[in-house]
Amino acid sequence: MTFKSKRDLPVFLLLVASIIVIAIALLTPVVLHIISTDAIDWILVILLIIGFAIVSGILIWNYFDIYYEFRDDYLIVKNGIFKSKIPYNTIKKVKATKRMFTGYRTNSSRDALEIEYSYGMGSVIISPEHKDKFIAELMNRSPQAVFYTSNN
């Protein structure tokens, strides 16, 4: 069973603002170099454009490729280039949170859950689309975990 991540407009706007700032930082030198120089250093221009494309691509990939998948023995938390396997028997606590910018997070919404487990990073913040169904499924697979699901 797979759950997609819930997405909030403010998080999307933050992504767009980040890409704009990166574009200004990496592409302004390209434009200024082209305007002010007769001999264009094409290697510099190409490297800066490639840098912009790579950084923006990773940000966009990490925003849109987020899902949470229940497997037989573990929960997969996938966020772009990152993927974690959390065995159900290591989950200690699940609680509602609105924290977005701290810790290991794979969410794109302020309506999130923090899953604490007993190895590796120790916790992850996620934001499944159908939170109630996700929590019910996680309760079935991790009966030892303590659940605090009302928002803080």
Rank of each mutant, 00 (worst) to 15 (best):
L14T: 09
N79Y: 02
S36W: 07
N62F: 01
K95E: 15
Y74D: 15
I58R: 10
I58M: 12
T97M: 02
I43R: 14
A53W: 03
D41V: 04
G57K: 08
I60A: 12
V45N: 05
K93P: 00
I35T: 12
I49H: 02
I49P: 03
P29L: 04
V30S: 03
A23I: 00
L14Q: 11
N62H: 12
K83F: 00
D41G: 12
I76L: 05
V21R: 15
F52E: 06
Y88I: 01
I40T: 15
V11I: 14
N62T: 09
K93F: 01
D72T: 06
I19T: 04
N62G: 14
W42F: 09
S56L: 01
F12W: 12
W42G: 11
F12K: 13
A17E: 10
G57R: 07
L47F: 08
G51E: 08
E69S: 07
I58S: 09
I66H: 03
K93W: 01
L14C: 10
V77A: 05
F12R: 12
R71Y: 02
V45Y: 01
A17D: 12
W61T: 12
V21N: 14
P29N: 09
R99D: 09
Y67C: 04
H33K: 11
I76P: 00
V55A: 13
I19A: 02
Y74R: 13
I50W: 09
I91D: 01
I46C: 07
K78G: 01
D73S: 06
G80Y: 02
I49M: 08
F70Q: 05
L13M: 15
S18M: 13
A23F: 00
K93G: 00
